[in-house]
Design a protein around this nucleic acid. Structure first.
Lengths: 180, 180
DNA sequence: GTCTATATTTGGATAGAC
DNA sequence: GTCTATCCAAATATAGAC
């Protein structure tokens, strides 16, 4: 994870990964059939503790948006994870990238989660009728992703949580309720 | 440009670039001292026709924000350029990447341009007093960047111009004036 | 200014011993 | 399950002819 985050997929070498894991390059390939397989394994592992796989008990309505702001705040303390996703998601749009399907599916899922949360918020009367859940969903995800790159290049210049909350409240047209 | 956009920096080879340019790999290195030098050259070239280098006659106040929406619309017809910046900007956060300074400076400049435009808009009475130009600047840039990755992975699922305009109008708390 | 040739390094992957 | 040894391909960069 750390090596892919620090170097990206193509510039990461199995030799470096092996060394950091305490075995040889051939040893790594005993557990994963190829470098691409290793990347897939890393992403699958990460997924088990990530937002993209929130279960049925996930927060509903605006509480989900609040959860995203908290995620942004927590991310400011997890540079490695932020870098991993920022680097790999963008790299995945290159030709034949092994994580392309993963990120296509991930974004589709994230947009779906947000559309659902925004729709719930509408039904609960938490937000105005006029809001387009699909457009707002893309916007929220985009802000969070874009902030990560800016923050990685200049951590002192960008407050990810504050700007995320600003953008969300602006899109909703009202303040976000505090966390429980 | 096309090769770096399609493959990223590390996975692009001088051989492919040379072939597409109609000469040999050694021929390319006669004009650029190294692969990193070539990347720098590409970015410098692009800069001459790009938003980051708008001169003194750039649009002022909200007209600048309108200009950004138009850029997003135009970008939907320029996948190559979009991919170039999306891939390289994220890749630039990896260790020792040759475009790191370029993108750090670029984002700093973009934020400065946005802050200036938003400040002008405030002085012109085009937007409310309460708006924080610095936070809004980061947000606008982030939305545009984030949308590009989503759009590259699923062009049919994301309307870059519409969502950009939605986010900007939300952040401003009012509609954006039409272009001249 | 472009080429061929080559040096040198590094990469991913495989075979087979232990 | 891990290692050593090796293969093979590809990469950047340089030297020097034309």
């Amino acid at each position: 994870m750390e090596t892919f985050a620090t170097r990206g997929y193509h510039n990461a070498s199995l030799a470096e990964i092996a060394e950091r894991a305490g075995l040889t390059q051939a040893g790594v390939l005993h557990h994963f059939r190829s470098k691409a397989g290793l990347l897939t394994g890393v992403l699958d592992l990460r997924d088990q503790s990530d937002i993209g796989t929130l279960g049925e008990e996930r927060p509903r309505g605006l509480a989900f948006l609040r959860h995203l702001v908290e995620t942004a705040a927590r991310n400011a303390e997890r540079e490695g994870i932020v870098r991993l996703y920022a680097v790999l998601s963008a790299e995945s749009v290159t030709e034949g990238h092994p994580a392309q399907d993963y990120f296509r599916t991930r974004y589709e899922g994230l947009r779906g989660l947000l559309v659902e949360a925004l729709t719930e918020a509408g039904e609960l009367g938490e937000i105005d009728e006029g809001i387009d859940p699909v457009a707002a969903a893309s916007a929220v995800i985009a802000v969070m992703d874009g902030l990560q790159v800016q923050w990685l290049l200049a951590p002192e210049a960008v407050d990810m949580a504050a700007v995320t909350e600003l953008a969300i409240t602006a899109l909703l047209g009202r303040p976000l309720p505090e966390a429980d």
